[in-house]
Structure formats: C-alpha cells, structure tokens
C-alpha cells in the first residue's frame, strides 16, 4: 500500500511539476530573433532541425563523438526500456509493444553501458570533472542503480510478473493491489518513483527544455516578418529613455 502511495505521489509530482515548468517556458517571451545560424528559413525546416536534434543529437555529433556515442546508447536504450515497460500498464498488451519486448532487454544493457561510459568520462576527463557537481555524479549513479536493478530482476531475481502487472494496472485504475515482496523489486520501484519526483526539479528538464530553446526553434526570417513580443511591442513609438 505504501508503495502504491509513493508511486502515485511520484506520478503526480512528475506530471504537475513538468506541466508547471513547461507552462512557464511557454509563457516567457523571446523578445529577439536569436536562432543560431545557419538556421532554417521555414517552419517545416525548424521542425526538421528539431527532429534531428532530438532524434539524432545532431549538434552533439558535431561537438564530440564520444559523448554522442554514449549519450545515444543511453537515451536509445532508455526509450526501448520505456517501451518494454508499457506491457505492465496495458491490457491487452499493444501489438507493437509485444514485438519490441526483446529489444527492451538490449535497451536495458545499452542504457547501463551508455551511463557507464558517461560516468567514466565525468571521472576521467579533466574538463568534465571540473564542471561536474555532486548531483551530476549522483544522477548517473541513480540511473545506473535503476537500470542495474532492472537487469537484476530480469536475469537474477525474477519476480512474480503477473502480480507486478496486477499492481501496475491497479495503480492506473485506482484499485490498489499488493506488491509481491522481492527486495530488488522494491528497490527498483522506489528508485523509479524517486526519479519521477526529481525530474521536474533537476537538469532532467533538458528534455522539455530543448523544444523551447530559442536558438533552435526560431525561424530565420527577421527581415521578412516583424517579430515582436508583448513587452517589446509596448515600447514602439515611445521615446527611448535611459
């Protein structure tokens, strides 16, 4: 029961916190045109640029192949793992989720490998060690612990999957079910709920943030269309002061 509560609270904080952040990003005006050029000159072009950033990490690829490789390994792995986990929350399990199941396992391994690589860089590369705060290390350890415990559940201490699924569906339906008592499972789920809580208060905000980055999401057309935010527009026609 306590677990169901923890999980539900985690989910609420996650959704609420994230919605708050996103609303604030969206409300904050961008008074000037500042796309990093060369930038797309059409809206379709901006969508493409954003897609390349989010799906391929294009800028990171230009910057540093090691970070890019480990980063892709981790994030791609994460996506596969999330897809695999959908089976706990859908009944009947969607067809494509069923097809993706085995890839989820590889995803888990890739994720752990990628995280390990990123952490290795954080420890070994002088420049990156210099800029790292304790939370940067902890975040990687934290995700490693989630990934590691998840792989442990697959390969070492198999829990009662039927009961886990009943628990998860119960959460969604507001009909809380007991969780099978497996220490590793408890650890895995506690960490996962904590992750949900931490998400809106940490650097994990890079995920929504990238979509709001003015240097990436603006169309390069300042000469063709007058770009005005509300507070800047209010100055028009006023004599300048200062």
């Amino acid at each position: 029961m306590a677990f169901a509560l923890l999980f539900s609270v985690g989910a609420l904080v996650f959704v609420g916190g994230l919605a708050f952040r996103i609303a604030r990003y969206a409300r904050t005006p961008a008074p000037l045109k500042i796309p990093t050029t060369p930038a797309p000159v059409t809206l379709a072009g901006v969508w493409l640029r954003m897609a390349r950033e989010v799906l391929l990490f294009e800028s990171l690829f230009k910057a540093n192949l090691w970070i890019w490789a480990f980063g892709v390994l981790f994030h791609l792995g994460l996506v596969l793992v999330i897809v695999r986990h959908l089976r706990y929350f859908t009944e009947p399990v969607w067809g494509w989720v069923a097809v993706m199941q085995p890839f989820g396992i590889y995803g888990g391994m890739a994720m752990v490998l990628g995280l390990g690589g990123l952490w290795g860089r954080r420890l070994l590369v002088e420049r990156i060690r210099y800029i790292s705060t304790p939370s940067d290390h902890l975040m990687l350890l934290f995700l490693l612990a989630i990934g590691g415990s998840g792989l442990g559940l697959k390969f070492l201490l198999h829990p009662d999957i039927i009961a886990v699924k009943a628990f998860c569906l119960g959460l969604l339906q507001g009909n809380w079910q007991p969780l099978p008592g497996n220490g590793l499972l408890l650890l895995h789920l506690t960490l996962a709920s904590l992750l949900l809580v931490i998400f809106p208060f940490s650097k994990l905000l890079h995920a929504p943030g990238v979509f709001f980055s003015p240097t990436r999401n603006q169309i390069d057309n300042p000469r063709e269309a007058r770009h005005l935010s509300t507070w800047a527009a209010a100055l028009d026609g006023e004599p300048p002061h200062g």
Partner: peptide, 17 residues
C-alpha cells in the same frame, strides 16, 4: 523577460560538449 535565459539556466546537463 527572456525565454533564452530561463531555458538555458535549467537545461544544461553538464555534458561538456
């Protein structure tokens, strides 16, 4: 006043790129 500042303050993951 500046979305750039708001987003940039939050988004950096200290990747070092």
């Amino acid at each position: 006043q500046y979305r750039s500042l708001r987003v940039f303050m939050d988004a950096c993951v200290h990747c070092g790129a």
